[in-house]
Design a binder for these strands. Structure first.
Lengths: 138, 138
DNA sequence: TTATGTGCAAAACATTTGCAGGAGT
DNA sequence: ACTCCTGCAAATGTTTTGCACATAA
């Protein structure tokens, strides 16, 4: 873990990062808490929030501001897009090439200083789709 | 307002829709509440939430699941993209042509049934940018 | 008249924060 | 030792909900 000089390498931080790295879904803070708690039963939810926030500020992980009610976290920091299932809420990566050039287009037509962009697809995942089909049969 | 048969046209609904239509920013529920309250001082925040939710389900308005802590609402329902200021949090439309074809690309490479996509640019708006410059001078 | 909607207040969630004690360096 | 960090619990901010009364159709 890349830390700032005064940022300490604690057990909690190591384990949060390890657990986040294990999954390809993009867990919410509470899901990370559940994962980490299996190894560190006394960890507090506040510690999880504080460290996820800190790591995303440092750039070690990504905080995803996707749809739904909760923020999600991603151990993969290089630019990529996401897809969210409107039925179960799960968020996955989608392997569509990142369009760096549209930032320039945006800069030309807007008064903003453009810092980046994110694409979120929405749909129904395979699992939810097959569950719907089952229900139609019944 | 296009209503379902059993959906009543109340004063509250008319005014919420009128006020939302007046602005080009994309207000949060609380901002809509403040706008509407000037004309209907006794309206409840719950009513505003209930109706914004209902209207977005009906398709009369759009609920924007953009970054930040609050949902935002948009009276313009035809597809378009947004840009959010990371400094003040404001969300505006950005007039970049909608790329309908990337839904097909997404459908080809993923197992999801694709329903749509949304692009959110992030940056610093003109107002915040000039404020920053002022501060650097001081 | 009667089902739907509203105002109000409480509840439910998600997230942040204050503080006293604990631990990395 | 000296900070920074943690667990805990309380606070905060956003959204939802239950219920008695009001109102559109």
């Amino acid at each position: 873990m890349q830390l700032t000089p005064q940022m300490r390498l604690t057990t909690q931080r190591q384990i949060i990062l390890e657990e986040l790295g294990k999954v390809k879904t993009h867990p919410t803070a509470n899901e990370v808490y559940d994962m980490v708690r299996k190894r560190l039963p006394r960890i507090g939810l506040g510690t999880v929030y504080r460290n996820l926030e800190l790591m995303s500020e440092t750039g070690i992980i990504l905080k995803l501001e996707v749809g739904g009610t909760q923020k999600r976290f991603d151990a993969t920091v290089d630019p990529h897009y996401h897809i969210r299932c409107l039925s179960c809420g799960k968020v996955n990566d989608i392997d569509i090439p990142v369009m760096e050039e549209i930032n320039k287009t945006a800069a030309e037509i807007s008064q903003y200083q453009i810092l980046g962009h994110h694409i979120e697809f929405s749909g129904i995942c395979e699992t939810c789709n097959s569950q719907e089909k089952e229900q139609m049969v019944n």
